[in-house]
Design a protein around this nucleic acid. Structure first.
Lengths: 103, 103
DNA sequence: ATAGTGGTTAGAGTAAACTCTAAGTCAAAC
DNA sequence: GTTTGACTTAGAGTTTACTCTAACCACTAT
């Protein structure tokens, strides 16, 4: 179990951002008896995944969609895959456009 | 020779945007005796190129750099190519990250 | 007892890239 | 003779994804 400060340090984001992600329903940690956020190992993995998606310039709205589907369970796996595939296509198209422009 | 309104229609941007691009030194049209903007065929080609770069999510600052180099002449060709290549790499890296994440 | 970390709400600030409005002028076209 | 489209400066508004400050409370450790 990690506190908000620990998670912030571990992954290199601010506590502000973590609270913001919670507000945006992207990462919803547990709370302890004092109402303090507690992040499990799985929250941490999920956060790292989210940050990877961010690195690929996936907009937060898309990430939120993905997060929502994820909370919905296994039966959304196909939809989630589609989201990733669509994003991949959009990046590939950018590359294609650039290569054409570059001629 | 095209007026600002004609260019806007032809390429699908607003006159606001064209004036903004001018302010940002991205596209500098000629002026007629009345001080009105006049875009030549080459301005139009250049604008289309800029919009292609935009499609690939190249930030305006990079596009401005490219535009500046372009006005500098042929001897900047290598620099310009590098700018495009760097951008290409960054897109390719996004794709790579996504593919790794997607595992 | 005070520093440090955690919590809250509410709201201001930032950067990018526009996007638009205001308020006024001027010339061409119908 | 008025509508249309051009011009100007100056500044406000929009979206995204944070980023930070204020102001105040609670708990733990030194």
């Amino acid at each position: 179990m990690y506190t908000i400060g620990e998670v912030a340090q571990l992954v290199g984001v601010s506590t502000h951002t973590l609270r913001y992600y919670e507000k945006e329903n992207i990462i919803l940690p547990d709370r302890n008896e004092h109402g303090e956020r507690k992040y499990t190992e799985s929250h941490l993995q999920w956060l790292k995944f989210v940050l990877k998606l961010k690195e690929t310039q996936m907009p937060i709205t898309k990430i939120k969609e993905y997060a929502f589907l994820y909370t919905e369970g296994e039966h959304t796996a196909i939809n989630r895959l589609k989201l990733l595939e669509d994003h991949k296509s959009s990046i590939e198209n950018q590359l294609k456009t650039l290569k054409e422009t570059n001629k």
